[in-house]
Design a protein around this nucleic acid. Structure first.
Lengths: 336, 336
DNA sequence: TTGTACGCGTTATCAA
DNA sequence: TTGATAACGCGTACAA
């Protein structure tokens, strides 16, 4: 199969010539746009299926100003607990994209470096983008807005004016806290991470909200936020044990993982000595002998929904500005 | 800034007109190809930097038959232990790609479904591909070969004839086993997973090789492979305890994680009652009180190398068919 | 050194 | 219903 004639990929012109029709006829047969004779069309399609013609994506792109690509913007995470979230997001988006004949172009942004995103915008290699993490003072959203490229965020955006899809973190945390409160669990401590991330703000709001509903406020001494290192978490846990917190409500599985670790080390019994709950379940929590009360979100659905909405936007359809997805409160031994 | 004139993106023609030069002059200034006056070039570049012109990727693609995209083929994995590997691969490839002005297009293939890959090939949206997992009877490699698209695999390919980059799994496992053997650890049991994956074949080879060097063979009764479920691992562990295995050599961190879990449950002491080692370190092993003897590979380097080699191939450079990366044997308490 | 003109492979407009 | 032909935006021989 080598040497001789240079193996060139078939173009629409080749197909047209070999079929004795014009390129426009072939084009119309494929796209279905414009009027086209039924049997002509069938003849073209049969030829294509048998002889394998595939349109040149670049040429299509140029002619239609449409790439059939969507950009997926991932933060640089490296903890074992953040990973599954973004991993699932990616899978879901990819799946939905494939199903609609789109490909995904993945860009990883570390921290506040906007250059990768700017590059993607200027390239015009994508028809739309999914931003998988949002911050209180987000530097990516303004860029996206200005670019006029359709985009949807997974996570809330302060000040709105962006199409957002998110798990109902606030509602979920509120319900979880309320349930604990209603079970006469008092002195619920809160252990939270980086408050710049919107997801963490939402969860904290939920925690406060549950108290608010009862006209109460949590004891400020039991609230720890911006716990950005294991050392800080350790310090918080030690202090909370001294302060006789009844329950440690962990903002996410990363913190919860660490808390469970520490408590086990110290020989503290759960739930006898202290109860524990997590605002986000992940399989990492399965590593412990005790089952943990937590909130479960369907990340795949989150990704699928975000992608679907984006595709609708690209198609010029009207889409809801904010979509909140459901959650499950899972009560287990750790708060018995 | 709204209404009135439709906001159209600048083309090379706009730049040429506004600068009073021809399009080819602008094109040459940007690419640096062909002869071009130094000050003309500077004038063009300055204008571009100040007024922001970005070439249309689709048009470039069409004109040069080059997409500046590379395809990254990921398997569908969902275990917490497989994830970090592919995650790191992706990060590394993305990083190297960005640095060379390429974007990555991610495709996820579940099992033996080749359609996503065929789609990517026919699309011609990428200049090359990185395949991140290889199988003994690989259905993706033949497709890739036939496509004539440059590609490199992360992992070995049976029968060769493919550019491969891999950690030296065989060498690493051989050394680990040898070290154990030299420390008078006898009765080393082997617990392995899916043998269809090349990485697992390589590791098993290393295990056998270490015995071979000494003119010996491992006790077949201590060898378990294709352990594809937790149940199977549990059964193997129980049997091995009965058979008085001295050491359990786990093929990867997934198996090791499970083994450690089970031994803890059963109250078996490590290393007093039985020693444990893993052919692949990952942070999941940090969850246990005991530190584990294991092999450490630099996955980021693996990804970077694979990507770099691919880029060289795309540039028509000569590349080595097989690249094996280094490893570290890390001796810890679990085999003391 | 610079400009002209054509080709890349499709889609889309307008006649026929 | 079908066929010419002009875009789409860029790179590049070739000519000047």
């Amino acid at each position: 199969m080598k040497g001789g004639e240079a193996e060139r990929v078939k173009t629409i012109q080749d197909v047209a010539r070999e079929l004795g029709v014009s390129t426009s006829t072939v084009s119309r047969s494929i796209s279905g746009k414009g009027r086209i004779g039924k049997d002509t069309r069938e003849r073209v399609m049969r030829y294509i299926n048998e002889n394998g013609y595939y349109p040149n994506a670049a040429a299509q792109s140029l002619a239609q100003s449409k790439t059939n690509n969507i950009g997926l913007i991932l933060p640089e995470v490296d903890t074992l607990v953040d990973m599954p979230f973004f991993h699932s997001c990616m899978y879901a988006v990819e799946e939905m994209a494939q199903a609609n004949d789109y490909d995904i172009l993945v860009v990883i942004t570390s921290g506040k470096d906007t250059r990768p995103l700017e590059r993607l915008i200027n390239n015009r290699k994508v028809d739309g983008m999914v931003l998988t993490r949002t911050y209180e003072d987000d530097c990516f959203v303004p860029l996206l807005k200005e670019s006029r490229i359709p985009f949807v965020t997974i996570g809330q955006v302060k000040g709105g004016e962006a199409v957002q899809v998110d798990s109902d973190n606030t509602g979920a945390c509120m319900e979880l806290t309320s349930v604990l409160l209603s079970k006469k669990v008092g002195r619920i401590a809160y252990l939270g991470g980086n408050m710049e991330q919107m997801v963490n703000q939402c969860r904290y709001e939920g925690y406060l909200g549950a108290y608010g509903q009862l006209g109460k406020k949590p004891d400020g001494k039991l609230v720890y936020r911006n716990l950005n290192s294991k050392t800080m978490i350790e310090k918080a846990v030690e202090e909370l044990l001294e302060k006789k917190a009844e329950c440690m409500l962990c903002q996410d599985d990363f913190i919860c993982d660490e808390v469970l670790h520490l408590l086990a080390e110290k020989g503290v019994n759960i739930p006898e000595d202290v109860k524990v709950a997590s605002c986000h379940y992940s399989r990492i929590l399965d590593n412990y002998p005790i089952t943990v009360t937590s909130l479960k979100f369907d990340i795949m659905q989150l990704g699928r929904t975000a992608c679907k909405i984006l595709l609708d936007m690209i198609d010029g359809k009207e889409v809801p500005e904010k979509t909140l997805l459901d959650y499950e409160v899972i009560l287990k031994e750790s708060t018995k």
